[in-house]
Design a protein around this nucleic acid. Sequence first.
DNA 1: CTGTTAGCGCATTCAT
DNA 2: ATGAATGCGCTAACAG
Lengths: 355, 355
Amino acid sequence: MYFYKKIRMSGKTTIYDIAKKLNITAATVSRALNNNTKISEATRKLVMETASQMNYKQNKLALALKSGKSNNIGVIVPRIDSNFFATVIRGIEEELHPHGYHVIICQTRDDKNLEIENIDALLNAQVDGILMSISNVSNEQNESFNRILKKNVPLIFFDRKANIDGVSTVTINDFQGAYDATTHLIAQGCKRIAHLSNNRLIEIFRDRYLGYKQAIIDSGLEFDESIVIETISKVEEGRKITKKLLELDNPPDAIFSSSDFTALGAIQEINAQGFKIPQDICVAGFANEPFTKFMELSITSVDQSPLEMGRMAANVFLEQVGGNNGNIKIEKKVVLNPKLLIRESSSKFQLQKII
Amino acid sequence: MYFYKKIRMSGKTTIYDIAKKLNITAATVSRALNNNTKISEATRKLVMETASQMNYKQNKLALALKSGKSNNIGVIVPRIDSNFFATVIRGIEEELHPHGYHVIICQTRDDKNLEIENIDALLNAQVDGILMSISNVSNEQNESFNRILKKNVPLIFFDRKANIDGVSTVTINDFQGAYDATTHLIAQGCKRIAHLSNNRLIEIFRDRYLGYKQAIIDSGLEFDESIVIETISKVEEGRKITKKLLELDNPPDAIFSSSDFTALGAIQEINAQGFKIPQDICVAGFANEPFTKFMELSITSVDQSPLEMGRMAANVFLEQVGGNNGNIKIEKKVVLNPKLLIRESSSKFQLQKII
DNA sequence: CTGTTAGCGCATTCAT
DNA sequence: ATGAATGCGCTAACAG
C-alpha cells in the first residue's frame, strides 16, 4: 500500500487525488474542471484552486479512450523533406493547432507497403482523421482506403489523389497549370516544345502531360509524342534527357518540365552545350521550388500554393467532423488554381516582375 | 439494449467481442493475442483466426492508458517548412518508425508562448518523449523544461539547445564550422572578412560568431567588430547589409554568413554592383540549403548533416527509454562534425569538386 | 448541487 | 491453461 502510494505521489496527480484532498468525489471534480452544468461556485473555485496548486493536468489519453476522440490526425506523405510537402504540412498544422488537434506525420518514401502499414498504424492509434497524398496506385491500397472509410474516419486526399467515392480531395488544377505554362512558351515563339514528364499512373503527372498536349494542339502546333519523355524528378535525369534531346536532328526550342529539378538539369545541360536561355531555348518547370527564384537565371515555374492546400485540407477535415451529427458523408472536391510564374528562363521579350 | 448492440456492431471489434463469440474470457483472448505465457496452442490458434476473421485491431489508446506508454513522441521546431528542420524530422521519423513510435510535430514559429503551449499539450497527451529545437531563451521556458523532466519524460534538444542539467543534446560543432569556413576564406587570400550574424542569444549563432572571430585572430588578421552585422535570415536583409558594407571606405573582400539566405542576398548585391565573385569578393554561407549547390555560381556552405542529426536524436531517445530500468538519468551530449563544402563562390584558385 | 455506478479497451494479478 | 477481478483516468447517466 505504501509503495502504491509512493508511486502515485511521484507520478501525475489525477482527479481522484484532488477529490480525496477535498473530501469530495471525482465526478464533482471533473464537473468543476469542465465548467459543467450546475455546480456550486464555491466548490468550483475550490477545485480549480487546489487543482492548479497540485499541478493537475488532464490526461488526454483517458479522455480519448472515454470519448473515442484522440484529437490526433494522421498525415501521410511520400517524404517530408521536400519543400512542397513540408509546406503543406505546415498549413495543416497551423490550421488544426488552434482546434486542439495534433498532427502525426508518416512517410511512405513511395513504398506501397509502408503506406498500407502507416494507414493501419494510424487507425489503430485511433486518429480522428487521415490526410494524405498517395504514392502509388494499386488494389491493395484501395482495401486500406476502404478500411478507413468503414471506420468512419474522415479521409482526405491532397495533391496526389485517388478517385474514391466519398473521399474529399484538395488538389490544384494540374492540367491548367501545364496548359498555361505551355501556352506561355508558345507565346514566346517556341514551336517545338519538349516535355519532361513523370510516372503518368499518378494523376498529377498525367494531368500535366494532358495540359501540355492540349495547349500544343489548341495552338495549331504539331504534337510530337517522341519529345515527351517520362523520367523521375532528379537534376541528373534532367541533364541526361536534355542531352539526348539536343542531339536530335530536330532539337526542341523549349522544354516544359513537370518538375523543377529536371528543369534545372535541362538548364545546366543547355548551358553546358553553349546554347542561350531563353534566346535559343526556353525552359519552364513545375512546383515553384525555392531555388527556381534564387537562381541568377530564375526559372519559370508553376506555383501550387502548398500552404493554402494544407490549410484547405485541414478545413475540409474540420468541416467533415464538425457537421458530423450523424453519418452524413460530405464529399468535397477542392481544386486550387495554379499560378504561372514567368521568370527569366522563358522571357524572350521582356522580363516580367520576378515573384 | 438493442441500440447498444447496434452501436457496437458498427464500430470496432474488441477482445470482448471475440471472447463472447468463443465462449471464453477477454483475458484469455488478450493472452492469446500477445503470445503470452502458457496458453493452449489450440485456443491460441482459434483466437488468432477469429480475431483476423472479425477484423480485430488492437486499440492502442486503451493500451496506452493501461501501460502509461503512448508510443507517441513530440517534436517541436520553429518551423517545419525549412529544409533543415524537415530533414531532421525525416531522420527522426525514419529511425523511430521501426520501433513503433509515432511522431507528432509542433511548430513554434519562434513564438515563446506557442513553445510553452506546445510542451504542455504534448505532456497532457502523454507523449513518451520530447525532441526539440528551442526558439528562444527565457525563464518561462525553463519552467516548461522542468515540467517535462519532473514527469520523467525524456527531453532531447537538437541544434538549438539550452544548457540544462540532465538533458541530452545533439548538435553540430557550430564553432568549428564557422572556424573552418573562415579559415578557408583566409586561405583564399582574403584579408578583410565581414560576418553576417544572427541573434546571438541563440547558441548556434553565438558559436558561429565565435568560430569566425577565433579564426581571424588565429591567422593574425585584424579583428574588426564593425564588420560583424547582426540580422535575420532573409535574402533581402543580406542584400541591404551587403550594400552598406560595399559602401564603406574599406569594404570587405569576403563575407562569411551564418545563413545561406543572407549569403545569397550578399551575392546578388555584389553582382549588382559589378564586382566579381570570387575574384573580388568571396562568399560563404551556412546550412547547405539545397539552392546553394544548384546556383550557376554555387555557394560555399557548411553542411550540418540534418538527417544524421535527426537519427542521432532519435537514437539518444531510444537509448534513454531502453535502459530505463529505474530512474537512471542518461545525459548524453552528441556533437556532430560540420562539413565545409567548398564551392565556386569562394574558390579563387581551383574549383574543387562540387558536392 | 453532489455521490454512485459504470464503461471506454486492454493487460495483469490472483485464484482455480 | 483459463476465469474473475481490478485499474489505467476520465466522463456521463442516473439517482438523490
